[in-house]
């Protein structure tokens, strides 16, 4: 369930009503940030938006870490394929990173 997409907060509109203006790939919409009350949202923050409400903050650090792991996975897989060609795959697979 759940079409939710990342957007960046441009401006906090009405603190009392929890509204913020968000940019989503060039489209702008007013979003309710009331669910982020534990750590109030500020301009520049990236948030996940679902049905006009911000559900969660997006952590750039976690995203970068994930990209790093994905790149490693890709390189690892490519390296393993090469090794498979040499018939060494079994022993290396057990000891892999």
């Amino acid at each position: 369930m759940c079409l939710a997409i990342p957007g960046q907060i441009i401006e906090i509109l009405q603190e009392r009503d929890n509204l913020a203006l968000v940019d989503i790939v060039g489209v702008r919409r007013k979003i309710d940030v009331g669910l982020l009350s534990e750590e109030p949202a500020k301009p520049g923050d990236w948030v996940l938006i679902h049905v006009g409400f911000a559900m969660s903050r997006i952590s750039e650090e976690d995203a970068r870490e994930q990209m790093r792991l994905l790149k490693m996975m890709g390189e690892h897989a490519a390296a393993m394929e090469e090794i498979t060609g040499y018939g060494l795959d079994d022993s290396v697979a057990r000891g892999g990173p």
């Binding site: 997409i5 790939v25 060039g26 489209v27």
Partner: peptide, 13 residues
């Protein structure tokens, strides 16, 4: 495709 069209399509599914 222009960014804003892409964005609206992503947002609205």
């Amino acid at each position: 495709i222009h960014d804003a069209v892409r964005g609206a399509c992503e947002l609205l599914g």
